[in-house]
């Protein structure tokens, strides 16, 4: 198991390195992201631009620039081109809000997806299944930002049930924290509930045809025991894999739309602002931050997967 984890961690570093290089190249190849001209202002003469370029080290060869940038990210010295604020600090400040949003939404989406998917599968072909299928398909067809806007308009503005956005730290007031996050949680969860309940349904229908489910019935287990211990347990394996990937993706940038509409000052909102001003350092840092989470959860999932499905463990220790 130790070697298995070590192998995954090495792979993880490799992918992160590749991503950082690609992001760096993309923003250096695109000509109009020349930061010096923008920082120096509209009426800057060539001399000023040259000085700014020099200050930022933009005259160095690309590999040197890359190394400098990465060094600054990891030592926490990276500052934004446009605002002089420390990038790592800004990201760190955004993490609690982003995590609050993502973890809450993830709990909601998994809970509902499992219940809906399970009911859909055991009633496959019935009225309840049809209804849940329709709901799920609507869920995956809603643009997240639009759903957020509509919920805000009707529930916060017209009916005034909820606040119109913003974020209250958990440490400040837990009740207000949850109250402010409820709509964002639901917004972010809807798409995934639809997607995951469909996935669990088809996964369960596949597993129901497995020989070992027939064995479980032949043993004289009750239908509920067959469904939970044998069908559901085995159907969750692919779902958990995907959950890890999606959770990583949501933390690593997927929540940006929800944060923008609900005005939650998390990492996503920060990224949105940085993008607006084409500010390379925060963009680099946030992309790395996002990629880090995606790859991290990828790795966690691989390890968890090995735990859930004993066959994988054998395969890995044999390698």
């Amino acid at each position: 198991m130790g070697r298995f984890i070590a192998k995954r961690l090495v792979g993880m570093v490799g992918v992160l390195f590749a991503i950082s290089v690609i992001v760096f190249l993309i923003f250096n190849v695109i000509p109009n992201s020349d930061p010096a001209a923008r920082i120096a202002g509209k009426n800057a003469d060539a001399e000023l631009i040259a000085r700014v370029n020099d200050d930022l080290g933009l005259n160095d060869p690309l590999p040197v620039q890359y190394v400098t940038l990465m060094k600054e990210i990891f030592t926490g010295q990276l500052t934004s081109y446009s605002s002089d604020l420390n990038v790592d600090e800004q990201i760190r400040e955004g993490i609690p809000a982003t995590m609050s949003l993502c973890i809450g939404a993830a709990i909601i989406w998994m809970a509902f997806a499992i219940v809906f998917g399970y009911l859909s599968a055991v009633r496959a072909g019935g009225k309840l299944d049809t209804m849940l299928t329709v709901l799920a398909l609507i869920g995956i067809s809603l643009p997240v930002f639009w759903l957020a806007a509509i919920l805000l308009y009707y529930l916060s503005f017209r009916v005034q049930l909820f606040p119109t956005g913003g974020y209250v730290p958990l440490t400040e007031d837990p009740a207000q924290w949850a109250y402010h996050l409820l709509l964002p949680w639901i917004t972010l969860a809807v798409l995934f509930i639809g997607f995951y309940s469909r996935l669990l349904r088809s996964s369960m229908l596949d597993v129901m045809n497995e020989d070992y489910v027939r064995t479980a019935r032949a043993k004289g287990l009750s239908e509920r025991q067959v469904r939970t211990r044998h069908v559901l347990r085995n159907s969750l394996i692919p779902i958990v894999t995907l959950f890890g990937l999606d959770f990583g993706a949501v933390v690593g940038g997927g929540a940006i739309l929800t944060e923008t509409v609900f005005n939650i000052n998390g990492v996503g909102l920060y990224a949105g602002e940085a993008i607006g001003s084409l500010d390379l350092p925060p963009l680099m840092a946030v992309t790395m931050f996002g990629a880090f989470f995606i790859v991290l959860f990828n790795t966690i999932v691989d390890i968890l997967y090995a735990y859930l499905d004993p066959r994988i463990r054998l395969g890995s220790s044999a390698v």
């Binding site: 027939r214 032949a218 287990l221």
Partner: peptide, 26 residues
Amino acid sequence: DDDLRKVRGESIAMIFQDPMTSLNPV
């Protein structure tokens, strides 16, 4: 269902063709 469940495994037991797939792998 319940009466049938009591018979299964208790009075009538069954083994299947493919022992590879008839046991739950997890």
